[in-house]
Amino acid sequence: MASLRDIKNSINSTKKMSQITKAMEMTSAAKWNRGVMNAKAFVPYMEKIQEVTVAVAMGSNGINHPMLQSRPIKKTGYIVMTSDRGLAGAFNSNVIRRVFQTIQSRHKSKDEYSIIAIGRVARDFFVKRGMNVDLEIIGVSDQPSFESIKDITSSTVGMFSDGTFDELYLYYTHYKSAITQEVTEKKLLPLTDLSTFAKLTSYEFEPSAEEILDVLLPQYAESLIYGALLDSKASEHAARMTAMRNATDNAKEMIKNYSLIYNRARQAAITQEIAEIVGGAAALE
């Protein structure tokens, strides 16, 4: 049996640990709040741009913009969104596992896909396995502004336009509630499923529908990526919050058990001491 001091040490270190996890839970809670607010603030923009895009793309017949057309698939792009840091429960591993399995089942050789990693965890995972990571971005802030991720969104959309890949999938964690988040796969490009939201207004175009699509479609695709990133950030903090709460609860449980063992050991030591004194006194008589 461990000595009294060993047990005392375990209790102390577990207490310290629970303080840290508690603090992390609280910071995550604050970030989670902000994250959810950001995701909500983005909704009106997203809805509007979607509405306009659909109206323009559907309302003008005979337009063949490259971003709207499926072409033979030689290479597929995957955007993977994870966090930069761990300690968020299964948040990162869920996304990565899903992408990894998908790639394994769909592709036979490395030339058939390329990965765009957002977040250190995804980057490290795929680079370590020697998979094609073409673009990476790490250190995205907890409240990313549209401007700050413009580089990656526009280069990704650019890679589709210049034919680096012929379709683009997005993998991220969709935020449902504080306790449920769901790994989501979304086909980003080409934009073939636009017709599903039919709410058409016929517009005049200034200067012309083609020129508007040239500007509008990349912006729309970029908005989709940005929206997913906000969603993923909200999920990350919710996941981390839950993970840290569980850790704190577990630590409390452990402290309880250790205290029990400690008290028992202390009692045993006292009993033994008394027995020794009594034994000693009896021997003197």
């Binding site: 306009v52 109206a55 323009v56 207004t201 016929s202 517009y203 005049e204 175009f205 200034e206 200067p207 020129e211 508007i212 500007v215 509008l216």
Partner: peptide, 19 residues
Amino acid sequence: KAQSGELGILPGHIPMVAP
């Protein structure tokens, strides 16, 4: 200011999209 020049919109304008 649209890309094609200055634009003024009054109530009742026909539906239009411009960058």
